[in-house]
Simulated assay, not measured.
Amino acid sequence: MDLVGVQSWNGSRPAGCGSALAQQYWALCDAWGIAVQAVAGAGFVSCVVLMLVLLLRLACVSRRRSGAAAALLLFLLATAGIFALPYSFIIALSPQTCPARVFAFGVLFGLAFGALLARGLALLGVELARGWREAGVVLALALVQVIVATEWLLVVLVQDKRMCQFSQSEFAMLQIYVMVLLAAALATGLRFLRQACVTYSYGYAGRTLRQNKLRAALLVLTLLLSVCVWLVWITLLTYGNRATGRSPLWDDPVICVALTANGWVLLLGHGFTQVCFMCKPNARTKDPPLDFTGWTTHGTQPAAPQDLRTGTDNDGFQTDADGSRGKDAASPGIFMREISAEKDYSIPRPTTTNINEPYDEYYGHRV
């Protein structure tokens, strides 16, 4: 990829371009350039709106979710950058657009795929990616690509003084670390999907289990589509365009389309759905709390209201000092209230069939 070859990709001026517009901006007026700008612009605006919604929600979420919200904010920031990056490929390669192409391409995808990898680790329960440490893992993973791209720019472009003259294969090899992140995130997502599918629950955790299955499926689908996009653009860039005689005419359009397509895959598959999960209120039980009004312990003696009356603990076996049975000898400190059948949680106690003379029928005569 060199300046002369890319700048002369289109010898005729598009119909929508003015005569004063420089040749390196002609693709902005071409049909494919306008289509890419429209689709990428819509994706960029969508990312900004989601980030604003997440920032407003971030002040209300619990501390347990704040770390995941910060990592999601980094992911949306990277996705917005991916939607803005096609403009540096629509404009012809120059010393001004070269650093954006070489540096920002890998860093933005490293940040996005690093966020997906950290989310998968957090869903698996890895302690390293829990809470605010998830955002730290995302930044640490993206920092590696920052170092790789910076060294490549300094060594290849500055020390060798090559003026952005690099081949398509070299540009693809610069993204090896990003491909490793993509593969690791896909492996983590598949493991979480397997774990969510083989786990069974029959209690209140069933709703959480269904939500985990949905999250795992969306994460794996997003990563699989991203793998397909990367396989297509790398194959076309390194072999397909040259084999069909379309290189370098189709090189920049291929990357622009790949950036826009992968941006929408990331936005719809993970960004939008995760914001919906994050903004969803916590589930609350529909049943009202139990009302234990009037139920007191044995040691307390509250003022007896009008609807309270004294009663015996068990009148079937209650005896007093003179040997009489069945008398209402109330236990001190115990108050009773008439409660409805819906709130009746008492345990029935056994009673004899003959309270006055319990053994007469057994012996057949009076003892």
Rank of each mutant, 00 (worst) to 15 (best):
226 S>F: 07
226 S>Y: 09
226 S>H: 06
226 S>G: 02
226 S>E: 06
227 V>G: 05
227 V>I: 02
227 V>A: 11
227 V>W: 10
227 V>K: 00
228 C>V: 15
228 C>S: 07
228 C>I: 15
228 C>D: 07
228 C>N: 02
229 V>G: 11
229 V>A: 10
229 V>D: 13
229 V>M: 07
230 W>L: 09
230 W>R: 13
230 W>E: 11
231 L>R: 02
231 L>S: 02
231 L>I: 05
231 L>H: 03
232 V>E: 14
232 V>D: 11
232 V>Q: 14
232 V>A: 11
232 V>P: 00
232 V>I: 13
233 W>V: 13
233 W>F: 14
233 W>Q: 14
233 W>H: 15
234 I>V: 08
234 I>L: 09
234 I>W: 10
234 I>D: 12
235 T>P: 02
235 T>D: 14
235 T>Y: 03
235 T>Q: 10
236 L>Y: 02
236 L>K: 03
236 L>N: 07
236 L>F: 05
236 L>R: 09
237 L>P: 01
237 L>Y: 11
237 L>Q: 06
238 T>I: 11
238 T>G: 07
238 T>P: 04
238 T>V: 13
239 Y>F: 14
239 Y>V: 14
239 Y>W: 14
239 Y>R: 13
239 Y>L: 14
240 G>A: 09
240 G>D: 04
240 G>F: 03
240 G>I: 05
240 G>N: 01
240 G>S: 10
241 N>S: 06
241 N>P: 04
241 N>G: 07
242 R>L: 10
242 R>V: 07
242 R>D: 06
242 R>W: 13
242 R>H: 09
242 R>E: 09
242 R>I: 04
242 R>C: 00
242 R>M: 09
243 A>L: 09
243 A>Y: 09
243 A>V: 03
244 T>E: 09
244 T>Q: 06
244 T>R: 10
244 T>N: 10
245 G>T: 02
245 G>A: 02
245 G>F: 10
245 G>M: 04
245 G>R: 07
245 G>K: 03
246 R>Q: 08
246 R>P: 00
246 R>E: 09
246 R>W: 08
246 R>K: 08
246 R>D: 11
246 R>F: 07
246 R>A: 05
246 R>I: 00
247 S>K: 02
247 S>A: 12
247 S>F: 15
247 S>P: 01
247 S>D: 14
247 S>L: 11
247 S>W: 14
247 S>T: 03
247 S>V: 01
247 S>E: 08
248 P>N: 04
248 P>E: 03
248 P>C: 01
249 L>R: 15
249 L>I: 12
249 L>T: 13
249 L>G: 09
250 W>M: 12
250 W>Y: 13
250 W>R: 09
250 W>E: 11
250 W>L: 13
250 W>I: 03
251 D>G: 00
251 D>F: 04
251 D>M: 02
251 D>V: 00
251 D>C: 00
251 D>K: 02
252 D>M: 15
252 D>K: 13
252 D>I: 06
252 D>F: 15
252 D>N: 14
252 D>W: 12
253 P>G: 12
253 P>A: 07
253 P>E: 02
253 P>D: 04
253 P>K: 03
253 P>Q: 05
253 P>V: 05
254 V>Q: 03
255 I>P: 05
255 I>E: 03
255 I>D: 00
256 C>P: 00
256 C>W: 04
256 C>D: 00
256 C>H: 01
257 V>Y: 01
257 V>I: 15
257 V>R: 06
257 V>C: 11
258 A>F: 10
258 A>C: 04
258 A>G: 08
